[in-house]
């Protein structure tokens, strides 16, 4: 057989042999195989995608947590500041109240002292008056111990009475 003349027999067998192989393999080998490969590739792709989504979700969650945390911190700071302010204010108020109360008490004490002083003075005056009366009485008693003096006095009173 010649080298560059294709033999009819070989052409025939090659054509039908190859076509037979082609159709059998397409039906029973390549279709199921390519489908399985596609399925596997898509499942891998899906797995990768879902991993990516999970990672994104995690990142979102983390970001959200951080946000919440910062917000909480801010709120805490605000609350603390408010509390501090309130306490400062309360202390100030208490101080003021105390000062006021003290002033009031001092004023009251002063008033009481004044009254006491007046009362004492009045007492002293009474006592001085009674003392002077007693002294006078004692003096008088001494002066009038003799009859002459008594007579003179009675005379004096009688004079006065007469005049009336």
């Amino acid at each position: 057989m010649d080298l560059i003349t294709p033999g009819t027999g070989l052409i025939f067998w090659q054509l039908f042999g190859f076509l037979g192989l082609l159709f059998i393999l397409i039906k029973f080998a390549w279709k199921p195989m390519l489908a399985a490969l596609d399925e596997r590739e898509s499942s891998i792709e899906n797995a990768l995608k879902s991993a990516e989504t999970a990672r994104n979700e995690m990142a979102n969650l983390k970001a959200e947590n951080e946000k919440l945390l910062t917000e909480a911190r801010l709120e805490r700071d605000i609350i603390l500041k408010k509390a501090q302010d309130a306490s400062v204010k309360m202390i100030d108020e208490a101080k003021e109240d105390a000062i006021k109360a003290g002033a009031q008490m001092i004023a009251n004490a002063k008033a009481v002292i004044e009254t006491e002083k007046k009362a004492a003075l009045a007492d002293i005056k009474t006592q001085v008056a009674s003392l002077s009366l007693e002294i006078t009485e004692k003096l008088l008693r001494k002066n009038l111990s003799d009859d002459k003096a008594q007579k003179e006095l009675v005379d004096g009173f009688l004079n006065e009475l007469k005049l009336n």
Binding site: W13, G20, I24, A29
Partner: peptide, 26 residues
């Protein structure tokens, strides 16, 4: 001529080898 020549036998062997490999893979 449709003779089963040496190359036709070789062709059958190759068809069987390739077909068997592909089908067992499938």
């Amino acid at each position: 001529e449709f003779s089963i020549t040496k190359n036709v036998i070789m062709l059958f062997i190759v068809l069987i080898v390739v077909g068997w490999l592909a089908l067992s893979a499938a």
